[in-house]
Design a binder for these strands. Sequence first.
DNA 1: TATATTAGAGTTAGCGTTGACGCAGCCATT
DNA 2: AATGGCTGCGTCAACGCTAACTCTAATATA
Lengths: 350, 350
Amino acid sequence: MADVSHTTVSRALNNKSRIRSETKEKILSIAKELNYQPNFIARSLVMKRTKTLGLVITTIANPFYTELSQGIETTARSLGYNIILCSTNYELSAEKQYIDMLRSKGVDGIIFTSAHMGDPNIIELAEEEFPIILVNRRTYHPMVREKVDYIGVNNILGGFLAVEHLIKLGHKRIGIIGGSSESSVGFERLEGGKKALDTYGLEVKGDYFLEGDFLKGSGYQGGKKFLNMAQPPTGIFATNDYMALGTYQAIVEEGIKVPEEIALIGFNDIEFTSIKGIELTTIGQKKYEMGSLAAKTLVERIEGGKTRPPKEIILEPELIIRKTCGFHLKGYQIELPTMNHGRGTINGDP
Amino acid sequence: MADVSHTTVSRALNNKSRIRSETKEKILSIAKELNYQPNFIARSLVMKRTKTLGLVITTIANPFYTELSQGIETTARSLGYNIILCSTNYELSAEKQYIDMLRSKGVDGIIFTSAHMGDPNIIELAEEEFPIILVNRRTYHPMVREKVDYIGVNNILGGFLAVEHLIKLGHKRIGIIGGSSESSVGFERLEGGKKALDTYGLEVKGDYFLEGDFLKGSGYQGGKKFLNMAQPPTGIFATNDYMALGTYQAIVEEGIKVPEEIALIGFNDIEFTSIKGIELTTIGQKKYEMGSLAAKTLVERIEGGKTRPPKEIILEPELIIRKTCGFHLKGYQIELPTMNHGRGTINGDP
DNA sequence: TATATTAGAGTTAGCGTTGACGCAGCCATT
DNA sequence: AATGGCTGCGTCAACGCTAACTCTAATATA
């Protein structure tokens, strides 16, 4: 060594007080020369902090989650945290295993991107006040809402915008393919859609609501089912782009033209929906930003103590008009005032 | 406790000998009751094993890497390892930082999915005999080849198959958009393409080789450049699907038809190239399997000691014929024997 | 019967850090 | 001159485990 105790070295490396600056610089230069890397494990053992976060995700194969993850990872890194990736592949038992493993490895917090509606694992962690955050999907459990932060998009508004768009284009028969019933996101988008129908005085007809699972296959089957109806819908809102792509394929296979005969709109604006040959009209959301905010908020909670009341950050969705809705062909048929999105009034003005 | 020392508990939990089975079961049942989770950090500190791997990747935004990562993560998990995700976003300095962090956190090994050709970080790790593995991209440095495992696809054959396919379809002027010169993958695919031209007696003309960077933009620019030539190529091989998509857009924008006027072929077979409206002809590779093998091989090296000579596992690529090459319109114009792929002869037969 | 062997435990040390505490030496205040 | 406080270090313990060693009692062997 450099003629000092290991404690002094620790003081030098961690920029602590009670050390002479000469001594500190001497130690630091020796450390650099030896290419010394502090042992994070030993530090973690005593500090009870690992500077590592768990990221629980169904699958990064879905580009929506990929982009979200990018935001999470990049921001976490800039805050000095690493990410342990946990793909559950849609199995709740895997989630439990991952949680145990993550806690055993001492992660400082966990990010859940696709929590089930009544996920018992989440409830348990919330009760313990272990630092977690919900992104994208949420849980409505009161205990959870009282304790854990949530970052998401306004899915109700998103669903509303999608269906409103179809209505304005003149469609009267609108089919909606919902997401999994275990997902708050699917539920909320469907709610928004129904609200639009209601607002514009259209009948809310059960036949026109199908439950999917956010996978391409269910979009495909939903599409086929709609086409086999006596009165098929003329406009379809699939509650995510994957299902919209499946629906698109089902429609095209039947020799029916999109958007001339059937209009189609998705949700998420994943990268490949914009390319020539598809150009899916969809509801966009800031996925990267959502991930980034999630990482930031979780780190805040970890480092700031647990006293802060939980945040709910709801981002705004955005209608992205491309080709599959037929807007470029005929434009809006009806002009009605759009729902008040909560941004139109300022300081008590009507 | 349960009237035993902590050592005995350790013996019970780790299924070690020198313990009576009654005692063991008693301890285990108490552990279960208390929902006891062993502290991995403390264990890691003494064992010098964290059961954690680093995954260094440019970006998971590219679906190729996403699928690869899925294979890696899922397999690693089944072997009892977790993955720390490290997206470099194409910065070499970020790679160095990540490596230091990973080693500081005591990962047992690191998986590199996109090593630069002469990556100094890789060389350093190889010299130290730290357990690493190269997937997809490799380094030709002799020291590295002598010490570290590599899993990849036969890119030379892949490039050959792509260009051969275009030749057989009757194309004489074939343009190739290469990948980054820092990537072995781009280099090899280009080599394979040139080899095909050579094999079929076509001129290898410098103008027809453009260097890209594997991003959509460079495919787009490459496409434009080709179209502005006095004698544009009639068939284009983009060395990955992203660039092919960019090229496709450039061509369509000019009002030229794919595949009627220009044939297009990509490489990787990422998910979205198969959907209706695109249907890109491409060279497929088993991305998930590649990742899976990488995780398995790295764990083998970690757990099996460092004495084993390095493996090179080269998977076989596969020509996937869809719509953009025009095969469905006219079929092959030339029938020439395909290059011997090393699988045609058995036991000394010709 | 005397001795060696073994199973089933406990005891102790150490992994590489950080943090609480102690102890000189120096300066400033009373 | 005596007291107090501060600076700059070293000492010691602890984090929660595993591994090496030790000890005891029971069993096997001569």
